[in-house]
Write a protein that binds this DNA or RNA. Structure first.
Lengths: 189, 189
DNA sequence: TAGCGACATGTCAACAGTGGAATGTAGGAT
DNA sequence: ATCCTACATTCCACTGTTGACATGTCGCTA
């Protein structure tokens, strides 16, 4: 139930409407905690019911600006300092497939890993330019957004290096026992 | 909907009952794709309805052993070779908090990152001994389980190094502007 | 032979997340 | 004056995930 804390965290920085928050989820938080409209508006309602946020202003078009309350701040700080974040990468489709690599032809398995290395490399290329953009943002986001960005960079590099290494491992395995390919492949039909 | 493919992948290696599969999810797949009883039995039923698996034998206690069908194999191979895995780490509570580190006192922020470094280190210590265990398993798992394990090791090391670095970055930030701590902390009442 | 633990499946309620549709308003440009 | 775009919220149906509960059987051992 961390969407709740994501919203509290955002409102802790400054009051905002659901619409504003949604934009943030679409940009800076998109990669760490995506959320949809339906989720955000619903959770804001629940948060208000619980007294953790309150409507601080109403604007045109029915706009409701929410601000965090004292209780909300306390909850936010408690979450940040007293509880451990859950496991990082609960599910990974990418790794799931690795377990089944023995069921396709070795060249296909190698291609898969090569592709993962490429994806890592691409991600680095996409993230790297953001570094300068983040540098110029308002102070908190500049400092902490940079930390998150760096995590992404390191992660992608690790992914790429691992995939490259893994591909070589499979190569070695092929040389060890050449004739062990599983049946040819789904027939064209 | 990758639980479906996880089951196909497992049944692609050898026929098994829901109970058997559940044990696998509890062990080797626990870290890449956890699943509960309810999910596994329900999905097996759906898979059978779709003709991707079939009951290959019935045992004592109502045991139903499922085997993958030709259609299932085709679907498995298609998934493995023709489709890209979804994004690796969709949500990360750990990184979400990083964005809000400016809202707690700098020492608390540093403590958080130090803790993340520790968790990475602990995870390495827990995973490293498994290397030898995996080495001794049946062939496919030995090769591919090792790849997955190595990913975990590299990931944890990356996490630890990043957190250590990030902590130093915050330290630098503190020195730059000393008096910027947000209000004291939730008061003890 | 009684009982226990492992085997084995099935069902249910609740919640989180996804995607889309419906509805309407304000403000700026033509 | 009109129209378009961005603003802004609400509702809904569907799927995936969790955890708990219910139910029953087999095989070993005390």
């Amino acid at each position: 139930m961390s969407l709740r804390h994501a919203l509290l965290g955002l409102l802790g920085q400054s009051p905002a409407s659901g619409y504003d928050l949604l934009k943030t989820f679409g940009i800076s938080l998109a990669n760490v905690w995506p959320a949809t409209q339906s989720q955000v508006y619903a959770e804001l309602g629940r948060l208000a019911d619980a007294g953790l946020v309150e409507v601080s202003a109403e604007g045109p078009r029915g706009r409701k600006e929410y601000a965090i309350t004292e209780a909300g701040l306390a909850e936010l700080r408690h979450w940040m300092t007293e509880t451990d974040p859950g496991p990082i990468a609960r599910r990974s489709e990418m790794l799931l497939r690795v377990f089944f690599l023995g069921q396709i032809r070795p060249e296909q398995a190698r291609a898969y890993l090569r592709r993962q290395a490429e994806l890592g490399e691409e991600r680095i290329k996409k993230l790297a330019p953001l570094k300068e953009v983040v540098e110029k943002m308002d102070d908190d986001l500049s400092v902490y957004g940079r930390l998150a960005l760096d995590w992404g960079l390191r992660f992608s590099a690790m992914q790429r290096d691992w995939a490259l290494w893994a591909e070589k491992e499979i190569e070695k395995e092929i040389e060890k026992k050449p004739g062990s390919a599983p049946e040819p492949e789904a027939r064209p039909e």
